[in-house]
Design a protein around this nucleic acid. Sequence first.
DNA 1: TGTGCGCAAGTGGTAAAAAGTGGTTTCTAG
DNA 2: CTAGAAACCACTTTTTACCACTTGCGCACA
Lengths: 150, 150
Amino acid sequence: MSNFLGSHAINMDAKGRLAIPAKVREGLAHACGGRIVLTANADEERCLLMYPEPEWEILRPKIEALPNMNKAARRLQRLLLGNAAPMELDSAGRILVPPTLRSYAHLEKKLMLIGQGKKLELWSEERWFAWLDESSCDEDMPPEMEALSL
Amino acid sequence: MSNFLGSHAINMDAKGRLAIPAKVREGLAHACGGRIVLTANADEERCLLMYPEPEWEILRPKIEALPNMNKAARRLQRLLLGNAAPMELDSAGRILVPPTLRSYAHLEKKLMLIGQGKKLELWSEERWFAWLDESSCDEDMPPEMEALSL
DNA sequence: TGTGCGCAAGTGGTAAAAAGTGGTTTCTAG
DNA sequence: CTAGAAACCACTTTTTACCACTTGCGCACA
């Protein structure tokens, strides 16, 4: 199973292509032969989610099956399913980010790619650093978290 | 099991390499054959955490398994997983600290490496001494701590 | 107890390899 | 027929591994 860790600063070129860092590329090649799905994130942070295709195929039915009389569930479906874009790495290990997703996450030239275990997150550099500064734990922790000893 | 104690003043060179003190190096060789994971600290102190790989592998699944619809949990995941960098000591017993982590913890030339039992903490010297001066206990203690007799 | 010698640790530099970048051409779809 | 996207190719920059030197500390012997 894939396991993505660490953060990487990357640049998107004028054509919207972005080179996946070699370390991550290896992980992707191993997890899914370079076949990935890129989609929007549903929580308040406007970043993109990058799943190896097999991971996405585990997740997708669960999202589709949500009871969509509920507003939050409908929102999740619209964002996650409605923005999902399957893609493959080109010969130079790059992907082309669709314009829709580019603007959703406010991606310009400088980006951050953040490993999150089974998936990756793609942020505009500016927003990532802003989040690092601003974020604090105003919400209370789940019990599993309170019990952690780092 | 590893047991790191004491503090060491160390210098980082211009390339971001830092030589692990020989004493600590022995402990690391014993605990993990020199395979370590460096990541960001989640609490308000911007320092880095250095785990022998086996220790990290105990902790990682617990972090990944947190319910990430919760904001505090998401924050922990982004910080701990999103900054984790596995690394090995080079032939001279040094590690190369990734730029992202260097800037997160405001590491410049002078650093402090602090033994914390199963892990180590890496601080900018300036911030370490500032913390020593400023820190006090305004928050109340968990019961296990109240019961301690030093 | 002090001085000198030797080894180990820390520091800095260099060279080879790999990764990232940009441009050009070809193909496809509108 | 045109425009945009995809594949390919070549070049430049960064990274990383290795090697050599210097410094400092400890130990031994005078």
